[in-house]
């Protein structure tokens, strides 16, 4: 099935690999395909709104353009909404002193914050308020505790309302037709290593399926082999290089050096890509190009959305 035919996609990966931009690009693709999409910033502090060039959003989804909605997770607001729906507690605008107590329990009791976060997301999916919910999820590690929250709570909490909720949430997360994780990586040493670790942990510690690895910032190939041989002859001291310097002066060196650096970087990254493919042969890989242009805001998102659309085609 197509990636965008699912209803809930968690986008995660090591910090700094471009999760937010990829989440935004993914949402753009889906909206372009006519879907009603909600993008949720899971840790509440990131730069999702900036990626769309809109002011920061809160817990209530905001439609920033037709079909495209944004929200930022806020576990306290999630609890308030939940209490309102289920306990009919007469709570005012804020939880007041309860909030700090809640903060404490959520900090101490494992999985409570996570279940409130993932619970709100799952609720939006279950109620079919949107065709697709894209979660700009926390980085490696933190995402595991979110995805595994329903299982964890089931093991620790034997009774109570929260326990009851874990059943349907767990089912929704475990259904590969509904929910999947996208791992974002860059073709560098540590991001690839951590992506493979994360893949292993998601498979062993959660019931959620992994749909694909999005490899972001793939450098372009400069030369094919024959061109490479010609370039080597230019880049090494010798008759050709002497001739270039004689005609163009010392400006030749930075240009040759830049091309040599670009070639070596590309080669080193290609080896990490190969390692990723080898270690995870059963996971689809989607390549997105390195953007040399100013990688900010909506333009970068649109460029990546176009690249993504071409890859998903």
């Amino acid at each position: 099935m197509g990636l965008l035919d699912r209803r809930l996609l968690f986008v995660t990966g090591k910090g700094g690999v471009g999760k937010t931009t990829v989440s935004a690009a993914l949402a753009r693709c889906a909206v372009a395909g006519g879907k009603r999409v909600l993008v949720c910033q899971a840790d509440g502090v990131g730069s999702l709104a900036a990626a769309f060039d809109v002011p920061p959003v809160g817990f209530d989804p905001v439609e920033i353009e037709p079909g495209l909605h944004l929200m930022a997770m806020d576990t306290e607001a999630s609890l308030r909404e939940y209490l309102k729906l289920h306990l009919r507690l007469p709570l005012g605008g804020r939880l007041g002193p309860l909030a700090s107590v809640f903060d404490f329990v959520a900090g101490a009791a494992p999985g409570v914050k996570e279940i409130l976060s993932v619970g709100k997301i799952a609720y939006e999916v279950r109620e079919r308020h949107f065709d697709l919910v894209v979660v700009d999820a926390p980085a490696s590690g933190h995402v595991i505790s979110q995805l595994a929250a329903p299982q964890g709570i089931r093991e620790l909490v034997k009774v109570g309302l929260i326990r009851n909720e874990t059943e349907w949430m767990g089912d929704l997360l475990a259904d590969p037709e509904v929910t999947a994780v996208l791992l974002v990586a860059t073709p560098e040493e540590m991001p690839v290593t951590e992506t493979l670790e994360l893949l292993g942990r998601i498979r062993s510690e959660t019931e959620v399926s992994v749909a694909a690895i999005v490899v972001n910032r793939v450098l372009p190939e400069l030369f094919n082999r024959r061109e490479g041989a010609l370039f080597d002859r230019l880049a090494e001291p010798g008759d050709w290089q002497d001739e270039l310097v004689r005609l163009n002066g010392d400006a030749v060196h930075p240009v040759l050096e830049a091309a040599a650096l670009a070639t070596r970087l590309r080669r080193s990254r290609a080896s990490h890509l190969a390692r990723l493919r080898e270690a995870a042969p059963d996971v689809a890989q989607i390549y997105l190009p390195f953007l040399f242009a100013r990688p900010h805001g909506t333009r970068a998102v649109q460029l990546l959305a176009d690249a993504l659309a071409a890859e998903l085609d």
């Binding site: 400069l222 091309a259 670009a262 040399f292």
Partner: peptide, 30 residues
């Protein structure tokens, strides 16, 4: 390619190398 000298006659290919070097420098300079 490895064994013989690079085929120098293939100007198109060499021109491509210059295009790429130029473009790559412009990209990285950005």
């Amino acid at each position: 390619v490895d064994r013989q000298d690079v085929d120098p006659q293939d100007r198109d290919r060499l021109a491509q190398v210059f295009t790429t070097m130029g473009q790559s420098f412009i990209d990285y300079a950005m």
